[in-house]
């Protein structure tokens, strides 16, 4: 089988948010973990719930279900730990999902100009047409030009 010039054969992780399935490029997914305690502290980033502690790393939690399906998740079965790249910096984020995830390798149809900013492309799998998500459009993050300076004193800006 050969791919058409417009498509790209890649691995994707299918995730479930309520009744719908979405996809993320597998290269952006680090781990699928059971929900753990969310540590909350004062902040002004309303899209974030707090952070979870995973193997010594503190990872921001962002429920993207409401943006995509119109309602928050009723049940959270796992946290999908994904990475976003800002310049040279890799930033982790935990996304609550409501079901098992699946790894597939398929062709992706790139998004068109008419698609929403959060759509990176489209997959056809198991009779469904599935959106490939662009995490940077769904989760808060810096504009490329506003990257913070690294912590010079003491801190380990581990990512």
């Amino acid at each position: 089988m050969t791919s058409s010039p417009e498509t790209l054969l890649q691995s994707f992780v299918l995730l479930r948010l309520g009744e719908r399935r979405f996809a993320l490029p597998a290269s952006q997914v680090a781990e699928l973990v059971a929900p753990s305690r969310i540590f909350r502290f004062p902040h002004k980033s309303s899209a974030l719930e707090g952070v979870i502690l995973r193997r010594g790393r503190m990872i921001a939690v962002c429920d993207i279900a409401e943006q995509l399906t119109g309602k928050k998740l009723d049940t959270r079965r796992f946290n999908l730990l994904a990475t976003r790249k800002y310049g040279q910096q890799l930033d982790w984020i935990a996304i609550p999902v409501s079901g098992e995830c699946e790894l597939i390798t398929v062709d992706m149809m790139p998004a068109s100009a008419n698609d929403s900013p959060h759509v990176d492309g489209w997959l056809s799998h198991g009779g469904e047409v599935i959106e490939v998500l662009r995490l940077s459009a769904l989760t808060p993050g810096p504009a490329d030009t506003l990257l913070p300076e690294p912590l010079h004193n003491f801190a380990e800006a581990r990512s």
Partner: peptide, 21 residues
């Protein structure tokens, strides 16, 4: 001391040096 995730983009970036466990 871990730097605040880049997902935090509000005033908290000036409130905190980072997070510790």
């Amino acid at each position: 001391l871990q730097a605040l995730s880049l997902a935090f983009q509000g005033e908290e970036r000036s409130w905190y040096r980072g997070l510790t466990a």
